[in-house]
Amino acid sequence: MNKSKHLEEVIKTHQITKEKALLDKHIQKKNEVKDALEEKYGTDIYPPFNSGSYAKNTAINTKFDFDLVSPFKRNAFSSSGTLEQMYNDVYDFLYDKYKNEAEVKKQKVSIGMEFYADSDGDVIKIDVVPGRELNQDQYSDDENLNLYVYYKYGNFDAGSERIKTNVKTQINNIKDRATNEKDSIRKIIRLLKVWKNNKGNYPTKSFFLELITIKAFDNNEITGNLWEKLKVVLEFIRDNVTKENFTLKDPGNSSNDLADTLTTYEKQQLSSDMENMLNRIGENDENLKTYFPENQKFKEEVSNKNEYGTNSGIPIPPPKLNFG
């Protein structure tokens, strides 16, 4: 098995442009929510913007990350208003407006909206991230925001108001690296997202995977084919994420450490998952398909000649080999 060829197919079948209709629905819904927020908060809010993977050029088509960052003015909720007030006010507004068409719930730093399936069965998910500028009218100059932590987020405690960041810098940092090194960084990030998405509800944020991929590239001479590059990144995560001095600086605020978004157990689990993956693929290349499957929806059918049961020219279905 040619591992790199398989990985290229994985990326190809996960290209976001292949799900144009669904992408358009997300963009449309995101714009609707953005307009609603601007109408509700008027001059108290700067234009909300998308900070998800689509904005960073690292999206895959099996999970759309549409994070709508909503930058509020410092005094939007009165001069003594708290971040918690901001967070709850936005939640109340979104809940009242969308409660009949979506499940609106409080998440770690965002408010998640999962719209009920439309007639095509498509589900649109938008996360609204309320943030507040540090000082009145300062956002235009520095684009810095304070976020509210609703519930325990790695080592950040619930109710904490200490996440200060610059989302635009975050986006640009990833986007620039992913675009400039699209054959390496962008591909690896997309592969890791395919892996994470495949795991279901995995605690590691996509942003964490983006930053750690970049860090792996900054710390290693990463060359060779796609599998060889991916392998080095997987090894880097395996070997480093549990180290006591391991940090992942937020490009939006160097005093934020993304390593803090995972608990010690979650870091151990991530390292152990990398180790298992490397071992299993090392034992048998075919296991790569378990971790990095192609998106069957867009898999091109290949001629099956020379495959099982076709030598006689009459296709024979493969036998059942798993039993209960």
């Binding site: 495949n198 795991k199 048998n284 398909k289 798993n322």
Partner: peptide, 20 residues
């Protein structure tokens, strides 16, 4: 073979595809 994760279909079919 015990599948516990979201990728259970891919996992099991890969394990039993004759090459693993």
């Amino acid at each position: 073979i015990c599948a516990t994760e979201q990728n259970r279909y891919e996992f099991i079919t890969t394990q039993f595809n004759g090459s693993v």
